[in-house]
Simulated assay, not measured.
Amino acid sequence: MSPRFDSPLVLLLVTGTLLGLAPPLGKAGIAAGVPPLGWALLISAGTAAVLTAILAARGTPPRLDRARAVYATVTAALSYAIPNALMFLAIPHLGAGYAGIMLTLSPVTTLCIAILCRVRRPTALGVAGIVVGFVGAVVVASTRGEVGRPADPLWVAAGLAMPLFLASGNVYRSLGWPPGATPTELAAGSHLAAAAMLLAALVLAGDAGGLVRIADVPGLALAQVAASAAMFACFFRLQVAGGPVYLSQIGYVGAAVGLLGGIAFLGEHYGPATLAGAVVIAAGVAMTTVAQRRATA
């Protein structure tokens, strides 16, 4: 991989853009009859298959030891299985764009957890960014989704829980990184574990039969797997290059792509308060980003 593509900024933009494709693709797939948990399973199973094939072609299949198994299991739960399940379950009620906006809370939440875990010391600007981001989140949450289709507060809470799990996963992946492990290896193992968790959840929910509906939308499914595999190939590289707080900024890029995709291709409509809240959250994200850069300068 070229040095330019290893730069944190390039990785951030690529990873965030690919992340933002998930909400609109997922909403379209769910509308075609695929169970929400089934779409989350498609992402993890497809990503694990593609990345494992790449590793096998390189002659470096994933290694399995206790440290990697623990890392894969915890990462799978915090970063993939739970937040993706929440996102795709909530999207039919909140809209793809609204669910994407919730991703913008990940950077602020990651900074809070990083401070609590003493991964990063707080600065005045960083704390101010947290407060601003929280205010924006309150504004967005109060609008409860698309115009004329207010969501049940339970689904709003589910959307707000997403960045909490994502942020916990962001910090854990840096703290728990197994010595000598490669980014692609960890991505493949974590998604394999996430796929097993989601399949078990589908079986318990009695929705496993709905997986056959994926065959009705082969184009969407292939686009989702390709985007997800490419995203997670970059995701763990960004973890190494930028650290957990910088990596969390993909939520901002992803939210912009998801919001525009929902409006442009899915006919979603959001009121001025929702869009204003998104701008306020973006301001909070910008403040925390500047604070991080100053702290590492």
Rank of each mutant, 00 (worst) to 15 (best):
I30Y: 12
A85P: 04
P61V: 13
L18Y: 06
H191I: 05
G261I: 06
G262H: 03
M287K: 11
A76V: 02
M197N: 04
I130Q: 01
L202G: 04
E268D: 06
A195M: 06
I115Y: 00
T109S: 13
L166G: 14
L42Y: 01
L25V: 10
L199D: 05
L202S: 01
T143E: 11
A45R: 03
T75V: 12
V108K: 08
P83C: 09
G136Q: 10
A28L: 05
G33A: 05
D207S: 03
I113D: 07
A114M: 06
I30A: 13
L166S: 13
G219T: 05
R144P: 11
W177S: 05
A90P: 00
A48D: 02
V70Q: 07
E268M: 06
V147L: 11
I263S: 12
G180V: 10
A295P: 15
I250G: 04
A49C: 09
A28G: 07
I214G: 03
T73K: 06
L211Q: 03
H93D: 01
Y252E: 07
V34I: 12
L37R: 02
V279L: 08
L94M: 09
S7A: 10
V253P: 00
T60A: 14
P179Q: 14
P272E: 06
A256C: 10
C112T: 13
R213I: 02
A161Y: 01
T123L: 15
A283T: 10
A81Q: 04
G284T: 11
T52Q: 05
S168E: 10
Y270A: 10
A208D: 07
L186V: 11
G133V: 05
A90H: 11
T17W: 10
A53R: 08
Y98R: 06
A283S: 15
V10S: 13
L238Y: 08
F134K: 05
C117L: 10
A291R: 09
V10I: 15
V156I: 13
F5G: 11
R120Q: 14
L238R: 09
V127A: 11
I281L: 10
M287L: 15
V140I: 10
A201F: 01
D6W: 00
L238C: 14
P150K: 08
H93K: 02
G59F: 09
G209N: 03
A48S: 07
A201T: 04
E146R: 08
V132L: 13
A200P: 06
G16S: 12
A45W: 02
A273W: 14
A81K: 05
T47S: 13
T296G: 06
I43W: 03
T289Y: 15
T289M: 15
Y270G: 11
D6Q: 13
L154P: 00
V10G: 14
D216L: 02
A208C: 01
V245L: 08
C117R: 13
V34G: 02
A187K: 06
L18C: 01
Q239M: 12
A286L: 12
A221W: 01
Y252F: 01
I82Y: 01
G26W: 01
T109Y: 08
G210P: 01
M197S: 06
A201K: 04
H269P: 02
L12H: 07
V108R: 06
V119P: 08
V50L: 03
T274F: 00
A77F: 07
V108E: 03
A286R: 00
A53G: 12
I101A: 13
L154N: 08
V279T: 04
A181I: 07
F5Y: 15
V279Q: 14
A40P: 05
